[in-house]
Each structure stands twice: as C-alpha cells, then as structure tokens.
C-alpha cells in the first residue's frame, strides 16, 4: 500500500452516521439506491471520516493507531482492506 497517496470521496454517495457506525447510500442514475447501501463498522467509519482529499494514508494510519491504540500492523491491515474495498466499489478514488 502506497502511504503517500491521498484519497477522495465520491460525491455520488451520501453518508449517514448511526452511532459510531455509518451507512453509505449510492446515487445511481441520480436516484438514491437504498437497497445497495454499504454498512461501515466503527473503524471503517473512522477511516472514511479521515478521508478528505488532503490527508495521506500515512496520516490516517497515525490517527487510527492513536485513536484505537492498535499496532501499526493491525492498523495497516484495516486501512488496506478498507481502501481496497471502497475503491473497488467506487466509493473512494485517488488522483495519482
């Protein structure tokens, strides 16, 4: 995983926090598709909130380690899995 990369949110998803978790609703052909929502657990929700088009994955990794007091290895795995899935689903993208 390239930690210097900066990721952006796709505006065609609307997010809604439910406690510490989150749902992402896709706008498909301009219409919200409530049957294809993505559920983010607490960690996924935290990473998603950190993605802002300016923070690098390295910065997000540091925040995750600090907030959840997890090892770098676990935090790296969490970010890697989350980014891979969200990019595949079109939720996140990078310009590099």
């Amino acid at each position: 995983m390239e930690l210097s990369l900066v990721y952006y949110k796709n505006n065609n998803f609307v997010s809604k926090s439910i406690g510490n978790e989150k749902v992402l609703v896709p706008l498909t052909d301009n219409v919200a598709d409530m049957n294809k929502v993505y559920n983010l657990n607490e960690v996924g929700s935290f990473i998603y909130d950190c993605i802002n088009g300016s923070s690098s994955l390295r910065e997000i990794l540091s925040s995750l380690i600090e907030n959840y007091e997890v090892s770098e290895e676990i935090a790296m795995d969490d970010i890697n899995n989350f980014i891979t899935l969200m990019v595949a689903k079109g939720v996140l993208f990078t310009k590099q």
């Binding site: 439910i18 978790e21 049957n35 929502v37 983010l40």
Partner: peptide, 10 residues
C-alpha cells in the same frame, strides 16, 4: 445500530 437501520431503510 447500523444493521437495523440499513435493513429497514431498503
């Protein structure tokens, strides 16, 4: 939580 929410939402 999010499970109840997303399942009713659809």
């Amino acid at each position: 939580g999010v499970l109840a929410y997303s399942r009713v939402l659809g």
